[in-house]
Simulated scan of single mutants.
Amino acid sequence: MGTVTLGVSIAVPEPYGSLLQERRAAFGDPAAHGIPTHVTLLPPTEVDSAALPAVETHLAAVAAAVRPFPMRLSGTGTFRPVSPVVFVQVVEGGAACSWLQQRVRDPEGPLVRELHFPYHPHVTVAHGISEEAMDRAYEELAEYRASWTCASFALYEQGPDAVWRKLNAYAFGGGIATVPAQGSPVDETATTL
Protein backbone atom coordinates (compact mmCIF):
# COMPACT_ATOMS: atom_id res chain seq x y z
CA MET A 1 0.00 0.00 0.00
CA GLY A 2 2.95 2.36 0.50
CA THR A 3 3.66 5.05 3.05
CA VAL A 4 2.27 8.47 3.93
CA THR A 5 3.88 11.40 5.70
CA LEU A 6 1.79 12.48 8.68
CA GLY A 7 1.96 15.27 11.22
CA VAL A 8 -0.13 16.15 14.27
CA SER A 9 -0.59 19.74 15.36
CA ILE A 10 -2.71 22.32 17.13
CA ALA A 11 -4.12 24.80 14.63
CA VAL A 12 -3.71 28.50 15.37
CA PRO A 13 -7.29 29.78 14.91
CA GLU A 14 -8.49 32.70 12.83
CA PRO A 15 -7.77 35.49 12.50
CA TYR A 16 -4.30 34.66 13.86
CA GLY A 17 -3.54 31.66 11.64
CA SER A 18 -3.92 33.48 8.34
CA LEU A 19 -2.20 36.60 9.62
CA LEU A 20 0.91 34.67 10.70
CA GLN A 21 0.85 32.61 7.49
CA GLU A 22 0.77 35.82 5.41
CA ARG A 23 3.60 37.29 7.47
CA ARG A 24 5.63 34.12 6.95
CA ALA A 25 5.09 34.42 3.20
CA ALA A 26 6.04 38.12 3.29
CA PHE A 27 9.35 37.23 4.95
CA GLY A 28 10.10 35.09 1.87
CA ASP A 29 9.46 31.61 3.25
CA PRO A 30 8.43 29.55 0.18
CA ALA A 31 6.72 26.91 2.37
CA ALA A 32 4.36 29.42 4.01
CA HIS A 33 1.23 28.67 1.98
CA GLY A 34 1.66 24.91 2.18
CA ILE A 35 1.77 24.77 5.98
CA PRO A 36 -1.22 25.88 8.06
CA THR A 37 -0.12 27.92 11.09
CA HIS A 38 0.28 25.52 14.00
CA VAL A 39 2.01 24.22 17.10
CA THR A 40 3.56 20.85 16.27
CA LEU A 41 2.75 17.79 18.36
CA LEU A 42 4.24 15.26 15.92
CA PRO A 43 6.75 16.40 13.29
CA PRO A 44 6.63 14.92 9.77
CA THR A 45 6.59 11.15 10.26
CA GLU A 46 6.45 8.47 7.58
CA VAL A 47 4.05 5.62 8.35
CA ASP A 48 2.63 2.69 6.44
CA SER A 49 -0.70 3.60 4.82
CA ALA A 50 -2.27 0.49 6.35
CA ALA A 51 -1.59 1.94 9.82
CA LEU A 52 -3.96 4.92 9.30
CA PRO A 53 -6.95 3.32 11.09
CA ALA A 54 -4.75 2.54 14.11
CA VAL A 55 -3.34 6.09 14.04
CA GLU A 56 -6.84 7.57 14.01
CA THR A 57 -7.99 5.34 16.89
CA HIS A 58 -4.87 6.24 18.90
CA LEU A 59 -5.31 10.01 18.35
CA ALA A 60 -8.99 9.86 19.30
CA ALA A 61 -8.03 8.16 22.58
CA VAL A 62 -5.32 10.76 23.31
CA ALA A 63 -7.73 13.64 22.65
CA ALA A 64 -10.48 12.08 24.76
CA ALA A 65 -8.16 12.17 27.80
CA VAL A 66 -7.58 15.95 27.58
CA ARG A 67 -9.67 18.96 28.53
CA PRO A 68 -9.53 22.32 26.71
CA PHE A 69 -6.75 24.60 27.94
CA PRO A 70 -5.68 28.22 27.42
CA MET A 71 -3.07 28.96 24.76
CA ARG A 72 -1.22 32.26 24.64
CA LEU A 73 1.42 33.45 22.18
CA SER A 74 3.74 36.33 22.99
CA GLY A 75 6.89 37.62 21.31
CA THR A 76 9.50 35.85 19.23
CA GLY A 77 12.33 33.40 19.69
CA THR A 78 14.79 31.56 17.49
CA PHE A 79 16.59 28.23 17.29
CA ARG A 80 19.54 29.80 15.45
CA PRO A 81 22.37 28.90 15.05
CA VAL A 82 21.36 25.25 15.67
CA SER A 83 18.37 25.42 13.29
CA PRO A 84 17.37 28.25 10.89
CA VAL A 85 14.00 28.98 12.53
CA VAL A 86 12.29 32.07 13.97
CA PHE A 87 9.10 31.48 15.91
CA VAL A 88 6.37 33.09 17.98
CA GLN A 89 6.63 31.83 21.54
CA VAL A 90 3.99 29.76 23.32
CA VAL A 91 3.92 31.37 26.77
CA GLU A 92 0.82 29.61 28.10
CA GLY A 93 -0.28 26.09 27.19
CA GLY A 94 3.24 24.79 26.64
CA ALA A 95 3.04 22.19 29.43
CA ALA A 96 -0.20 20.82 27.96
CA CYS A 97 1.41 20.70 24.49
CA SER A 98 4.39 18.79 25.94
CA TRP A 99 2.06 16.29 27.63
CA LEU A 100 0.08 15.84 24.40
CA GLN A 101 3.10 15.30 22.17
CA GLN A 102 4.41 12.62 24.53
CA ARG A 103 1.05 10.80 24.37
CA VAL A 104 0.89 11.13 20.57
CA ARG A 105 4.34 9.50 20.32
CA ASP A 106 3.58 6.90 23.01
CA PRO A 107 5.93 3.90 22.68
CA GLU A 108 2.89 1.60 22.73
CA GLY A 109 1.15 3.51 19.92
CA PRO A 110 1.46 3.61 16.12
CA LEU A 111 3.32 6.96 15.99
CA VAL A 112 6.39 6.16 18.08
CA ARG A 113 9.47 8.08 17.00
CA GLU A 114 12.50 9.85 18.41
CA LEU A 115 12.83 13.62 18.07
CA HIS A 116 15.95 15.24 16.58
CA PHE A 117 15.76 18.05 19.17
CA PRO A 118 14.11 18.37 22.61
CA TYR A 119 10.42 19.29 22.27
CA HIS A 120 9.76 23.04 22.45
CA PRO A 121 6.21 24.22 21.58
CA HIS A 122 6.28 27.19 19.19
CA VAL A 123 4.70 28.67 16.04
CA THR A 124 7.21 28.88 13.17
CA VAL A 125 7.14 32.19 11.26
CA ALA A 126 10.37 31.81 9.25
CA HIS A 127 12.37 28.74 8.30
CA GLY A 128 15.43 28.31 6.11
CA ILE A 129 15.40 31.80 4.61
CA SER A 130 18.10 34.48 4.55
CA GLU A 131 19.54 35.67 7.85
CA GLU A 132 18.32 39.19 7.07
CA ALA A 133 14.75 37.98 6.52
CA MET A 134 14.88 35.91 9.70
CA ASP A 135 16.13 38.97 11.61
CA ARG A 136 13.20 40.93 10.18
CA ALA A 137 10.70 38.25 11.26
CA TYR A 138 12.21 38.21 14.75
CA GLU A 139 12.01 41.99 15.09
CA GLU A 140 8.66 42.66 13.39
CA LEU A 141 6.76 40.06 15.41
CA ALA A 142 8.50 40.76 18.74
CA GLU A 143 5.36 42.44 20.12
CA TYR A 144 2.90 39.89 18.66
CA ARG A 145 0.26 38.61 21.09
CA ALA A 146 -2.68 36.21 20.71
CA SER A 147 -4.71 33.93 22.96
CA TRP A 148 -7.50 31.37 22.62
CA THR A 149 -8.88 28.23 24.22
CA CYS A 150 -7.35 25.13 22.64
CA ALA A 151 -9.99 22.41 22.35
CA SER A 152 -8.58 20.06 19.70
CA PHE A 153 -5.66 18.95 17.58
CA ALA A 154 -5.58 17.58 14.04
CA LEU A 155 -3.93 14.93 11.89
CA TYR A 156 -2.40 16.20 8.64
CA GLU A 157 -0.93 14.46 5.60
CA GLN A 158 1.75 16.00 3.42
CA GLY A 159 0.94 15.61 -0.26
CA PRO A 160 3.42 15.09 -3.11
CA ASP A 161 3.15 18.86 -3.70
CA ALA A 162 4.56 19.43 -0.14
CA VAL A 163 1.22 20.92 1.00
CA TRP A 164 -0.15 19.75 4.37
CA ARG A 165 -3.86 18.81 4.32
CA LYS A 166 -6.04 18.05 7.33
CA LEU A 167 -7.31 14.47 7.49
CA ASN A 168 -9.20 14.68 10.78
CA ALA A 169 -9.67 16.86 13.88
CA TYR A 170 -9.80 15.39 17.38
CA ALA A 171 -11.80 17.27 20.00
CA PHE A 172 -10.63 17.14 23.60
CA GLY A 173 -12.79 15.20 26.02
CA GLY A 174 -14.56 13.50 23.14
CA GLY A 175 -16.46 16.69 22.23
CA ILE A 176 -16.70 18.53 18.93
CA ALA A 177 -13.56 20.30 17.67
CA THR A 178 -14.17 24.04 17.82
CA VAL A 179 -11.10 25.52 16.10
CA PRO A 180 -12.12 26.05 12.47
CA ALA A 181 -9.86 25.37 9.52
CA GLN A 182 -7.98 28.42 8.33
CA GLY A 183 -10.08 30.58 6.07
CA SER A 184 -13.41 29.70 7.69
CA PRO A 185 -15.38 31.90 10.11
CA VAL A 186 -14.32 31.91 13.72
CA ASP A 187 -16.80 30.06 15.88
CA GLU A 188 -15.15 30.66 19.22
CA THR A 189 -13.93 33.65 21.16
CA ALA A 190 -10.32 34.57 20.45
CA THR A 191 -8.61 37.75 21.54
CA THR A 192 -5.55 39.75 20.63
CA LEU A 193 -3.78 41.40 23.52
Rank of each mutant, 00 (worst) to 15 (best):
residue 56 E to S: 05
residue 135 D to V: 12
residue 67 R to S: 15
residue 184 S to R: 15
residue 177 A to V: 02
residue 76 T to V: 10
residue 106 D to N: 11
residue 91 V to R: 12
residue 74 S to D: 13
residue 128 G to L: 01
residue 87 F to A: 04
residue 41 L to E: 11
residue 122 H to W: 04
residue 188 E to C: 06
residue 129 I to V: 08
residue 131 E to Y: 01
residue 174 G to N: 11
residue 113 R to M: 11
residue 192 T to A: 11
residue 182 Q to G: 14
residue 180 P to W: 09
residue 187 D to L: 11
residue 137 A to P: 02
residue 140 E to N: 01
residue 88 V to C: 03
residue 166 K to W: 00
residue 100 L to N: 11
residue 102 Q to M: 05
residue 13 P to A: 02
residue 102 Q to F: 01
residue 73 L to T: 09
residue 44 P to I: 02
residue 128 G to R: 09
residue 151 A to G: 14
residue 38 H to D: 06
residue 175 G to Q: 15
residue 154 A to M: 09
residue 180 P to I: 09
residue 81 P to L: 01
residue 167 L to Y: 04
residue 146 A to V: 05
residue 40 T to W: 06
residue 60 A to P: 13
residue 137 A to Q: 05
residue 123 V to A: 07
residue 113 R to H: 13
residue 167 L to G: 06
residue 142 A to G: 08
residue 123 V to G: 05
residue 36 P to T: 09
residue 56 E to L: 00
residue 30 P to E: 12
residue 44 P to M: 05
residue 30 P to C: 14
residue 163 V to S: 11
residue 177 A to D: 07
residue 190 A to R: 05
residue 8 V to Q: 03
residue 117 F to H: 15
residue 131 E to C: 00
residue 49 S to T: 15
residue 11 A to C: 01
residue 74 S to R: 14
residue 160 P to V: 11
residue 110 P to E: 06
residue 9 S to V: 04
residue 15 P to Y: 00
residue 185 P to L: 11
residue 152 S to K: 12
residue 56 E to Q: 11
residue 43 P to D: 07
residue 43 P to V: 04
residue 73 L to Q: 06
residue 51 A to S: 10
residue 112 V to N: 04
residue 75 G to D: 11
residue 180 P to T: 14
residue 146 A to S: 07
residue 12 V to E: 03
residue 57 T to S: 13
residue 77 G to V: 04
residue 68 P to F: 00
residue 8 V to S: 04
residue 127 H to P: 00
residue 170 Y to I: 05
residue 31 A to W: 06
residue 148 W to K: 07
residue 163 V to M: 04
residue 102 Q to L: 02
residue 185 P to E: 14
residue 182 Q to K: 12
residue 152 S to M: 13
residue 29 D to K: 08
residue 37 T to W: 00
residue 182 Q to W: 01
residue 6 L to M: 10
residue 9 S to C: 01
residue 66 V to N: 01
residue 47 V to K: 07
residue 167 L to S: 05
residue 24 R to N: 03
residue 86 V to Y: 02
residue 55 V to I: 13
residue 181 A to Q: 05
residue 172 F to T: 12
residue 158 Q to W: 15
residue 148 W to Y: 03
residue 174 G to L: 15
residue 158 Q to R: 15
residue 190 A to D: 00
residue 149 T to W: 01
residue 161 D to L: 12
residue 91 V to Y: 09
residue 180 P to N: 10
residue 183 G to Q: 14
residue 47 V to R: 10
residue 108 E to R: 08
residue 18 S to D: 09
residue 16 Y to E: 03
residue 193 L to Q: 13
residue 67 R to D: 12
residue 25 A to G: 10
residue 12 V to Y: 00
residue 23 R to L: 08
residue 175 G to W: 15
residue 30 P to F: 14
residue 78 T to V: 08
residue 161 D to F: 13
residue 61 A to Q: 05
residue 20 L to F: 12
residue 183 G to E: 12
residue 67 R to P: 05
residue 95 A to V: 15
residue 143 E to G: 06
residue 121 P to S: 06
residue 168 N to A: 15
residue 46 E to V: 13
residue 12 V to W: 00
residue 59 L to D: 08
residue 186 V to G: 08
residue 88 V to M: 02
residue 161 D to N: 13
residue 108 E to P: 02
residue 140 E to W: 06
residue 186 V to C: 09
residue 134 M to Q: 09
residue 84 P to F: 01
residue 96 A to I: 07
residue 61 A to I: 12
residue 98 S to D: 15
residue 187 D to Y: 06
residue 107 P to N: 02
residue 148 W to H: 05
residue 129 I to L: 01
